[in-house]
Simulated assay, not measured.
Amino acid sequence: PTQLGQMMEPPHAPRQVNKLLEAAGLQIKIDSLWVPTDQGQPLCEILDTGKAHNNVTPVKQVKWYQNVLDRLQPALPDESKTESIDQDSRYADPAPESEIVGSDTDEEPVQRKQKRKRNRYELDDYFSLVELGEFIGRSRQHVVEVLEKHRLIKWIGQGKKGKYLLTEKGWQYGLMYDPSEICFHNRNSKRLTTSNAQPVLGYDILKFF
């Protein structure tokens, strides 16, 4: 849903994409999980994330083919809501929300070992710095220190007047995401330092912890 939303014009949040898939009859929600319907199954794959639930059953995730966009009706413009971030605070916490399971992005792509706040950026496949700390049971500051030690992120600016950016090495493990514009910036973007873009990291980052 994250990538599909980025391909839409205007861009849609992952939560909106899940609702559009539901409205098109391509998926239904069972308990906390989005599950493809018979109509939706030819348009997606169900992949193993390499993770496991608490009961050791494997965690699966739905990945939709790009051509599913032809089946979706765009949401109304006023449904696109984003939230701004405070880039002056190096250790700010996101607003608390619910935990959980599934490919639904108003929850979580996989079940965590502990209760976990929702990633306020609503991305299926990436951790914010705060969320990564919650996942490993440590503070955001600890995450930042480890990532800086391995030269995966760097602080740009003076004191609190700045932000973290991915290093050249860090781009192998994550992306820069701007929640205000609901888009990713590439490493050559001239707006990396002037936008609200923040580092988000994939599951491969866990090997450093």
Rank of each mutant, 00 (worst) to 15 (best):
E108S: 13
D178H: 03
G170C: 15
S84I: 01
R138F: 04
D48K: 04
H185Y: 11
G174D: 12
S139M: 07
G170I: 07
V200P: 01
L47S: 00
R151T: 10
F127R: 06
L201Y: 04
V146P: 08
S139L: 10
L201E: 12
D178T: 02
G174M: 09
S84D: 07
Q87H: 11
L165H: 05
D48H: 02
L175H: 03
R187A: 12
V200M: 09
I28C: 14
L201F: 11
K154L: 15
V144S: 08
Y203R: 10
H185E: 08
K154S: 14
R120K: 07
S89G: 03
V144G: 06
E45F: 05
N186Q: 09
I100A: 10
W64N: 00
P11C: 06
M7A: 09
R138V: 07
P74F: 03
Q141N: 13
K160G: 14
N18L: 11
S89M: 09
P77L: 12
Q41P: 00
D48F: 03
L123R: 05
I28M: 14
E168G: 04
A23D: 11
V62R: 01
R191T: 06
Q73D: 05
V68R: 02
E45P: 00
F135S: 05
S84V: 04
H53F: 01
S98I: 06
T49M: 12
D204P: 02
N196E: 12
P11I: 05
I136S: 05
E108K: 10
E181D: 14
E99I: 08
L206R: 07
P179T: 13
Y164R: 12
L76E: 10
C44K: 02
E107S: 12
K29Q: 15
D48E: 06
E9A: 11
R120V: 04
P36F: 07
I46W: 00
G159L: 11
E45W: 05
R71P: 00
V143A: 15
D88E: 13
K117W: 09
H53C: 11
W155L: 11
D204Y: 07
A197M: 07
K81T: 04
H53W: 10
G157Y: 05
K160N: 15
D106W: 10
V35D: 03
L165D: 02
P58D: 06
A24D: 01
I153H: 11
I205G: 15
E168S: 13
G157L: 11
K163N: 07
N119Y: 03
E108T: 02
S98G: 08
F135R: 11
Q6H: 04
D125P: 01
P199T: 13
Y203Q: 13
Q198P: 00
V59M: 08
G162W: 12
P1G: 03
T105M: 14
R187K: 09
G202P: 00
I30C: 03
V200R: 10
S139Q: 05
K51H: 07
E122P: 00
V146I: 14
R112H: 15
K169I: 01
D106E: 15
R112V: 04
T37H: 13
P1L: 04
D86K: 11
S180M: 06
E99F: 06
C183P: 00
